[in-house]
């Protein structure tokens, strides 16, 4: 047992927790436009995102952990998006799917938000218009990798000693500030 109470058992338990967390994403499909149709294709039997643990997509921000923004978000929808994001409980991640959600796409217009990262922090950007279901699944796999890093980062931030992946941790620490100071 070291000074912060960590032992082999608790580390392994945390690894188990990480594994469970990243293999059971509960996406909140904030689908507005064409990307939502591609997301529906991802859900359906041809691609089946349930293989990655997202068996259930329900529109409940209290219970979901990945906010999957699929489609154009415009200035009228922005307060709604912010509210949903705020209602989600930590830990939460955001996947921005499609050109419109990432950056406004080709709608450089008076009513379209130029990317959802104007109001919420984004973890994975998936480009495409719309991204193919495989592209979205690639984004989800990238997020899985990110989730593992984040959990470890949080422990570092809480004062635990660095783990053997110290290289990743270094750059992770830089990103920690973004995560912590992001509006809750």
């Amino acid at each position: 047992m070291n000074i912060v109470g960590e032992s082999w058992v608790t580390t392994k338990f945390e690894n188990l927790e990480d594994w469970a967390q990243r293999n059971s994403f509960w996406p909140f499909p904030f689908g507005t436009a064409c990307c939502a149709i591609e997301f529906m294709s991802t859900l359906s039997s041809h691609y089946d995102v349930a293989r990655f643990g997202s068996e259930v997509v329900r529109f409940s921000p209290r219970q979901s952990d990945v906010l999957l923004v699929a489609g154009t978000i415009n200035d009228k929808m922005a307060p709604v998006l912010k509210k949903i994001y705020d209602q989600m409980a930590d830990p939460k991640w955001v996947i921005s799917m499609g050109a419109c959600a990432c950056s406004g796409g080709f709608y450089r217009a008076y009513h379209v938000m130029q990317g959802i990262d104007e109001i919420i922090p984004v973890d994975v950007y998936v480009p495409g218009c719309p991204p193919t279901p495989e592209g979205l699944m690639y984004g989800i796999l990238q997020l899985k990798e990110r989730v593992t890093r984040d959990r470890k980062k949080h422990r570092v931030q809480a004062g635990l000693r660095a783990e053997e992946q110290s290289g990743k941790t270094e750059e992770a620490v830089d990103r920690v500030d973004d995560r912590v100071t992001a509006p809750a």
Binding site: T32, A33, G71, T72, N74, K76, M77, V80, C100, F106, Y107, R108, A109, Y110, H111, V112
Partner: peptide
């Protein structure tokens, strides 16, 4: 409505 108004006509 208007939550997906993407200004097609202006574009």
């Amino acid at each position: 409505i208007g939550y997906l108004h993407r200004c097609f006509e202006k574009m």
